[in-house]
Design a protein around this nucleic acid. Structure first.
Lengths: 208, 208
DNA sequence: ATATACATACATTCGTGTATGTATGTATAG
DNA sequence: CTATACATACATACACGAATGTATGTATAT
């Protein structure tokens, strides 16, 4: 069955990406063949090679669709006269973790990144994106924390660099352990606890 | 050149495992062929198939050699009249992170586990071992924390389950981020800071 | 003399990339 | 408005290399 219009073609492209997500999730990236993806999307490899260059290109397309929802954080950054930047940061983190629970697609893609693909040099672009995400969000978090400090929400002598890394450590550890032990680990409960502990230590144990 | 004695054979087995470690680290597990490993060890595939069943069997042999050095922790557990269990725990964590920095082989293998292999169901045994490590160490940490509490080193109302998970979150996040961003992230500094913050929050923010 | 510890040779499978075929959409000429 | 030419969106077919597992050869140890 041949897709005809441009919209139909776009639809099969989407179908292929979703199918690839599922198969990558099930079999891991390197053990899935383009044929696996094609079958899961109910087309042939011809369709894949029409829309994508190769398997790696499909993988990048998956990543492309997954942008972190930083809008909430964005608000708290732009207006530096936001009265409660720290509260906004907390809202954002809660939102992030809830989104992680709620959106199965996001969960799948994160699990692919963390557990079902190999960060070798041939898909260095993925690792680079991963790292860039870390650096970008670090800048934004920094802005929030600086605002919070100037609003008196944080100790004047706080080591903001340390606080940023510490936050990343919390989130990364949370996600990884949850993906490793989904049934030992109640993500919603633990993430809330970890976030609370983080905000507590922000006040007390990050002085420079 | 044919290996002759039993000791020689054991030696090539070791050589093969070390070679596999290096190649897995460089190319990722699934992209390395048995021929790659054989060449790196300066033998042929025949030698591999003599000593191992297949690539996955080589992988398991690598894991077999890597047991966590839990002796220090063990001491603090066995005699429940150890006066300073919390200090012992801290020593152990410091030792662990230093060992991680110092031993390049351990570092390589951890990087393979976290970044260069795919936790799919066909190497489920690895994931299982990974999880088991988590659970085993959890029990030992629990013993230490219970001892610490009964020695008055921790608040009486501390939620020990939460404290255990929280510690794992710290260590996992630390290792993962270090492996992802080795040059942004000074492991020794950050791990010490994170451990300090953890011990601080142990005293204050884990009440049940 | 026989088992060990490999090396060598072979068969087979699997995935990839590309080349080609084909049906349908779309633009343009008349 | 219609016919024709071309592009689009795939499916099908083919050629190739690479990796695997096994079968066999062989030198050495015991």
């Amino acid at each position: 069955m041949v897709r005809r219009t441009k919209e139909d073609a776009q639809k099969t492209r989407e179908l292929l990406i979703e199918a690839a997500e599922r198969v990558f999730y099930e079999k891991g990236v390197s053990r899935t063949s383009l044929n696996d993806i094609a079958q899961a999307a109910d087309v042939t490899r011809g369709a894949i090679y029409w829309h994508f260059k190769n398997k790696h290109d499909v993988f990048e397309a998956i990543m492309e669709r997954l942008q972190t929802p930083l809008e909430l954080l964005h608000e708290a950054i732009e207006n530096s006269n936001e009265p409660d930047p720290l509260g906004r940061l907390r809202e954002f983190l809660i939102y992030l973790t809830r989104e992680m629970m709620r959106d199965p697609r996001r969960r799948r893609v994160y699990e692919i990144i963390f557990m079902k693909c190999e960060m070798t040099e041939e898909n260095e672009p993925l690792a680079a994106r991963h790292r860039q995400n870390f650096l970008d969000s670090s800048i934004r978090i920094q802005t929030v924390l600086v605002n919070a400090r100037s609003h008196g929400q944080l100790p004047a002598d706080i080591d903001i660099g340390q606080a940023i890394i510490h936050l990343h450590v919390q989130l990364t550890g949370l996600i990884y352990l949850w993906l490793l032990l989904p049934d030992v680990f109640d993500f919603e409960t633990e993430s809330e606890r970890v976030i609370n502990a983080y905000f507590y230590s922000l006040q007390h144990s990050f002085s420079a």
